[in-house]
Design a protein around this nucleic acid. Structure first.
Lengths: 126, 126
DNA sequence: ATCGGTTTTGACAACGGTTTTCACTTTCCT
DNA sequence: AGGAAAGTGAAAACCGTTGTCAAAACCGAT
């Protein structure tokens, strides 16, 4: 597979700290002189998220935002709502809690979404 | 205030167990003979969620879904992805974990979203 | 009841993010 | 080279949601 285009998207994502929308990435690439199309950006992001290379989440207004994550392992995000800086956090605590809660109510085949939002130290001291 | 229309939406929500989209509720009300408009349903849901009477979350495809919750207190949801049945779960464990994680990285003013999806006992034994 | 005004309502249009379509190009395989 | 298969991008379609605006319901004061 060619994926020259997909690599461009991958690298655009790798170069930033927080979550970015498809249109953000499109704008970035165009600003860098790429002739990529919006459609291709969407396709690349879909492929990358299908393959687990990037994490996706939805903003409050329903927009999908993407991020290239450092680790392959299951993790969650602590996102600064001012600057978008994101740190990956993991820990058995939540996982255990989710499993326990689910078992308690007879639910099986569990998945969960956990995201934490706040203001990071740098942004807070303004 | 006591807008009859808003009450209609409130009751439509109160009568069901899981999360419903705005359009679902609109369809329900119309099916019951109401002449309510879609716009009004959206407005009512917005008002109800602003006032904290209903919880909102986003499905994977970005659609907003609403639910009338039994408790005023902060809680999370365990949702059956087959039938939509939802149980409200709470517990200091996650809250503590979120606070600790945030503090550890210097984040303040924390909020978090936690949702657990699975298959409920009834749906699993099919 | 009736008048003014405010508020609520709903058909319709507009919007924005995402997906589909489709014709064109590029790549891959032989 | 040559033909099939995959990739690409502009524009159109889609769909949930929000804005517009005129008509309708409401309400307090006559």
């Amino acid at each position: 597979m060619t994926t020259t285009r997909r690599n461009a998207v991958r690298e655009a994502l790798a170069g930033c700290e927080g979550f970015r929308s498809a249109q953000d990435i499109y704008a970035d690439l165009r600003a860098d002189g790429s002739k990529i199309g919006l459609t291709t950006v969407y396709r690349a992001l879909q492929a990358l998220s299908d393959s687990g290379e990037v994490d996706v989440l939805r903003t409050d207004d329903g927009e999908a935002v993407y991020r290239a994550c450092r680790t392959e392992e299951h993790h969650h995000h602590l996102v600064c709502r001012a600057c978008g800086r994101t740190v990956e956090v993991g820990g058995p605590a939540v996982e255990k809690w989710a499993d326990a809660i689910a078992a308690e109510h007879g639910f099986v085949n569990i998945t969960h979404t956990v995201e934490v939002f706040g203001t990071c130290g740098d942004c807070a001291e303004g």
